[in-house]
Every structure is written in structure tokens, then in C-alpha cells.
Amino acid sequence: MLSYVLRRLATAIPTLFVIITISFFLMRVAPGGPFNLERPLEAKVMENLNRIYHLNEPLWRQYLLYLSNLLHGDLGPSFVYRDFSVGDLFAAGLPVSIQLGASALTLALIIGTVLGSIAALKQNSTIDYLVVGVATFGITIPPFVIAPVLSLIFGVSLGWLPAGGWGNGALPNKILPIVTLALPQIAIVARLIRGAMIEALRSDHVRTVRAYGLPTRVVVMVHALRAAILPVVSYLGPAAAALLTGSIVVETIFGIPGVGRYFVQAALNRDYTLVMGTVVVVSIFVVVFNMIVDLVYAWLDPRVRYD
């Protein structure tokens, strides 16, 4: 298995290289630069800045320079957050985003699985319709509506939880962002589990274990659920990569110092290195999580195991 992991990581390197190359040049096609502010800088100042950040050199040189720095683990300085390197920004923000994302994901998995299973077991009952209805609702209401509403109810009206802010990572501050992130995921997981569970409960091999008098608990937990969780595992790879790298909406509305906000801010400010840094980090997450998904899938389903 270790050799499989190493091979997978090795094949990921060319993928990352292509992503980095395309992003690098694509971004430079966009007009403007990091120092084109509303009030133009003096020509001399501009020239100095460009020299310091190597922006005066030909594009291919800048590209090679970026690659060689990247190989040394240096993501470069941020153009806009002048006192910080891109590495510093991620070191500060990424743990926050991962914490929120991972909590939301765990919550979504547990609640979604339970809800989906109950709905499947009571198919076409009131509970089933309720779960499906709520799930549809959860998927359709965007987080930029959920977040302020939650904040308004629990933060402002009831005053149970802080309406926003990070509070240095105090638990009450985390609850609303986590719930906002988790709600749509709960809905998706519940729907996936419900569908797959209904199919599993009707399958021949579940009929077999029922015919052999195994208690419902074993039939559902051991035989049906393992089959039902497979589509969720496939969904989880890209979903985890997206959640763990932060959400711009949630971070902006609740004022959380994660990395999600960098996606948009950096692109708008033409903060070249920060954009590239985000691309690199997200790509690595996607590659790693897809691999984890494949490993978990193979662990759950012997039919797709690699020898």
C-alpha cells in the first residue's frame, strides 16, 4: 500500500506543475498589477517596487524564479500584505480554516448519515419526507443567507453566542461558522446516504442476511451502511478539499481570520504570489484528499482493491 501511495504522489507532481504553470500565465494575462492603485504611485517609486519584486524582468524569468523558489518551499512575499510572506499568511490562517472545515465535515458526516439512514429505513413515511424536504432546503439556501440569519437569531436576538469575530478561537465563536458550513453538507450527505441505503436494503445480499435471522441492527449497521457509505466517500474528496481551505462567505460574514478570504481579495488586488500560493495549497489539498478517498474506498470495498 505504501508503494501505491508513493506512486500516487509521484503522479501528482506533473499535475501540480501543469496547474501552477497555467495559473501563473493566466493571471498575468489579466490587466493591471499589484501596484496599480487608485492614486497612481510616482514613477520612481513604481520602478523601485517593480525591481524589488522582479516584476521588471521578462515573464519567463519570473516564472522560472517562482518555480525555483517554490521548490525551496518559498511561496514568496505578499505584494499587498507588505510585512508578510505568503507562507506567513497561510501559517496563520490555514489552521483556523482547517479547524472549522474539519469540524463541519465531521458534524455533516455524523448527522447526515444518521438522518439519511433513518429516512431510508422509514422510506415514504413522514420522517422520510421531512428529511428529504429539509435536505433540499439545506442545499438550496446559500450560506450568505444562512450565516447572517444565524448570526441575527443566536447572536443578536437571543444573545446566546457571539454574532461574529474569532475571539482567539474560543468555542462559542466557532459554533455558528461551523454550523453554517455544515448545514449544506449535512443535506448532501443525508441525501446520498438515503439513496444508497434504499438501494442497499433492497439488494440480494441484504435479503440474505435478513433471511438468516440477523437482528435489524446488524443488517443495517454492518451490511447496508457499509455499502451505503461508498458514494459519500467519493463525494467527500473534493468536498473536504473545498471545506478545509476555507470559505470566503463564512469567513467574511463572521470575521474569521482564515485563508478563504484570500481567494478573492488576492485576485482582485493582483497579489500575484498570494494567488499562486492559494492555487498551490488548494491543489495539494485536492490531490491528497482524492488519494485518501481512493484508499478509504478500497478499504471499504474489496472489489476495487489494488494489488
Binding site: 440480494d204 445480499h205 441484504v206 435479503r207 440474505t208 457499509r226 455499502a227 470495498d301 472489489r303
Partner: peptide
């Protein structure tokens, strides 16, 4: 059962 291919749990 009739279906030997699917009557056992594949997992």
C-alpha cells in the same frame, strides 16, 4: 437463493 452472484455481501 437463485442469484449466487449477488446473494453474498461483496464487502
Amino acid at each position: 437463493f437463485q442469484e449466487p452472484m449477488s446473494s453474498l455481501d461483496p464487502l
